[in-house]
Write a protein that binds this DNA or RNA. Structure first.
Lengths: 337, 337
DNA sequence: GTGAAAGCGCTAACAT
DNA sequence: ATGTTAGCGCTTTCAC
């Protein structure tokens, strides 16, 4: 594998010159720089990141810690992170917990500590006090995406605000019997988010003098299947049915939609459904939702860290990322009873 | 940050002993090893991967190159790769093209060449001859997942076989008017897969003396929305309608389902729909499909490479990964006309 | 079973 | 503008 000496020797210059030229540092004549670039290209030379790290202290890589990859929010956010890192010439190393609580300490006590990265993005994780301590001890620049961890900065939408927007919209349409499908805190995935949204649900009901019926608060684990099952149980309850369902995510809203459809409950005539996310499937299905962009949140968070690595002042409180109500066909005024 | 010397000094042993003890190498007494392990734990010492790489030649990291993260197959396969790597103590560095053709050469000529990884997994990519050459020149052990690249080994299901199973099932039910939604080769994503499935579709029709109508072969780009639009056009064509649709992926089958539903076409009474994948949503929706497990394919591929890095003989032709017909509610015999 | 020391391939400080 | 050189923090011979 061709090294910096090969390039230097081929040109009769020193390795320092090659290093400087390749990294665009000052102190190299245009002519020399040109020759170096050409020769490096010709020989297919690229610096070894390990050697560069050892010598410079920078790995040019960033880590992402997440509970699971294969979930809409996570993979979208990962895409955004990668986009920002790619543009900055950084590599992305991904630490997934794989959806289980196992391996957690392995990740915390081996991988992340291997000094492979310059900064760390923590995605939607609920950390134990020990893990938080371990993380802070590493003292990488870090930031959380889509999850509040005490003592860490967070990049996300205003979850309470987004949920409030959804509720106010339903209430504004005239709904008074509103159910809520909340997400769950499985696998140590973030729990502050579903909780904040639930609180906004309750607060909206209360603000408008509406009844919060315990049996209308159901749990969907942030998943389609679980939500469909929970919605089925909701619809099959004796007595009055809600005229609207506010789901804490689009995937869960899809579950509600399918459960309703299987029972012949017409949407939106008999039942309004609203979600949060603007998942790829939401538009084709006609789901009203509150849009957020995990991809933008990911790239914003990555850029934040990238900037700080380059000496930008530390931003103590990242601003809320935007959310927006998107009205489609799944919501309408309640049936005039 | 605590280094190997700190541990050695604290114990009054040499760095060589610490290194050996920590890596489980022979030539260390049980007593010494115990002390070293305890002290390392106490000091929170973990070897720097860069320094270890430089000295040993091994990075203990594997790269994954893919066109996009945020897509069912990709993120599931990534999860599987990560699972296998995690178990082996390897880290995963992800190179995404981000769904565009841009940055391709950046990835090929910078990131991947940085000697950050010991082996490379290439996921569902169509490579230019130059890229293939670049890749082979790197001479990382490598393997492809879910995409055939000339000259590289591939881990995937038997795509032709899977498509044949789907078609034979529909034909066995009595269908004679069968449409096909094929995937597309956008963004330089693999194109052999949709093509092989399409060929199996054609071959099955021909084998049974059924007509292949060009207007019944539509393209869904492996996406829900595009597939729904294409299916809508299909259903709105004048003349006879197909009684069954074979979609090359579940997400595209969902599009067909929604397009049918919007037109009041009853499934499965008037229209049977079958997909490939067994996407998370397939079961709750009742979609008949041919199951594959990208996660298992990912971990199989990773383990293959991991084994070879440890000296296992090179497997020239990885076996096909399993697929299985899963019959649900979206298929039935055609309406008796 | 253990230690000393020579690198691994770069970068950065210091010379020139 | 360019060269020299001392590390960066490990692993791995080679001695003992």
């Amino acid at each position: 594998m061709t090294g910096i000496d090969d390039v230097a020797r081929a040109l009769g210059v020193s390795t320092a010159t090659v290093s400087r030229a390749l990294r665009g540092l000052p102190g190299v004549s245009a002519a020399t720089r040109g020759k170096v670039l050409a020769k490096a290209e010709e020989l297919g030379y690229v610096a070894s990141s390990s050697a560069a790290h050892l010598a410079s202290g920078r790995t040019m890589a960033m880590g992402v810690l997440l509970p699971l990859i294969d979930r809409w929010y996570f993979s979208s956010a990962l895409e955004g992170v990668d986009r920002a890192l790619r543009a900055a010439g950084y590599d992305m190393v991904v630490f997934s917990l794989g959806g289980t609580g196992l391996n957690r300490d392995r990740v915390f006590h081996r991988s992340m500590l291997r000094k492979r990265i310059d900064a760390l993005l923590v995605m939607c994780m609920e950390l134990t006090p020990e893990e938080l301590a371990a993380l802070q001890q590493l003292d990488y620049p870090n930031v959380t995406i889509g999850g509040y961890v005490d003592g860490l900065r967070n990049v996300s939408i205003d979850d309470g605000g987004a949920a409030t927007d959804a509720m106010e919209y339903l209430i504004g349409l005239g709904h008074t019997r509103i159910a809520h499908v909340r997400g769950g805190g499985e696998y140590g995935i973030e729990f502050a988010v579903p909780q904040q949204r639930e609180e906004a649900y309750r607060a909206a009901l209360e603000r408008h003098g509406l009844e919060a019926r315990p049996q209308w608060l159901i749990t969907g684990e942030f998943r389609f299947l679980e939500s469909k099952l929970a919605a089925a149980r909701l619809f099959d309850q004796p007595g009055e049915r809600p005229t609207a369902v506010f789901a804490s995510s689009d995937e869960m809203a899809f579950g509600v939609l399918v459960a309703a459809q299987e029972r012949g409950i017409r949407v939106p005539e008999e039942l309004s459904v609203i979600g949060i996310d603007d998942h790829e499937f939401a538009e084709p299905i006609g789901l009203t939702t509150v849009r957020q962009s995990p991809e933008d949140q990911g790239s914003y968070a990555a850029e934040l860290l990238l900037g700080e690595l380059q000496g930008a002042p530390r931003l103590a409180t990242p601003p809320f990322q935007p959310h927006e109500l998107i009205i489609r066909r799944s919501t309408a005024p309640p049936p005039s009873s």
